[in-house]
Amino acid sequence: MVGFQKWRRSESAQGLFLISPTLCFALLLLAVPLVMVAALSFWTQDYLTLDRTFTTANYVTAWTEPMYQYLMARSLKISIFVTVATVFLAYPVAYFISFHVAPKRKAMWIFLITIPFWTSYLMRIFLWKVILGYNGVVNGSLMGLGVIEQPLSFILYNQNAVVLTLAHAWVPFAILPIFVALERVDRSLIEAAEDLGDSRLRRFLRVTLPLSMPGVIAATIIVFIPTIGDYVTPRLVGGPNGLMISNMIELQFKKANNAPLGAALAISAMGIVTFFALVFLWMNRKYVRGPS
């Protein structure tokens, strides 16, 4: 009893007590639902009722049916493209803000970059449709300039459009962690490399880039995992060949009324992206030596 009284006043107990409401909320609304989705994926939908006998049939379907395999592979491909495009786009911008913008103006630049993110999500995607469409802004201006005679049709309703729109949506999320990592790079190390005769490129490759890798890794994870779950972008700008696994998950849960299969697909998709993310982290630890 005395021990408990003592523990109750300790830092550990106070911390746990303070965080308990938030933790309970997250357990109830995140952990419990995720466990239930996992359970559901092993059941069967029997028209209106659920058959709760354990079966792996949903996973067999999800992993062997060519349509699902194909959708999964395409979603993964699109997510990887989006991540690569976003990080390559974000790095120079973050570098510019960190190294070429006056310290007083940095906050303003970061604000400038986050503003478009607050335009209505649906509107943003829809407006890309207007920009890329047959009579859209890009085609209109290119025809007006006389660069092309016929409107380009390969820029909307395909996977390129999905990659472009998603990259646009996620680029602020990639800039922020890279910027934070670049800000932490000790400038005197770069000067030291300069004094030791390294060229600008070598300085960047040997000092700045390795030291900013934690930011690049964070950006990659932040973009890669959620991208696989977007179903609005593929629906609006993807056309029939740009649909992704999330559209199938949504279909199974809503119109197709096969929630267990939808759950199996959702868990498989999550498993695959988590696996890829872990492989990426592992490769980074092995081959790119960041700051220890």
Binding site: T22, V37, Y231, G262
Partner: peptide, 26 residues
């Protein structure tokens, strides 16, 4: 604990939507 509480930031929203839907219906 903090990692778990921050998890929704990187979780695809469709997963959160789906799992809450399942719980509410069940």
């Amino acid at each position: 604990i903090m990692g778990f509480v921050m998890l929704p930031m990187v979780l695809p929203e469709i997963i959160i939507g789906v799992s809450l839907l399942v719980v509410i219906i069940q």
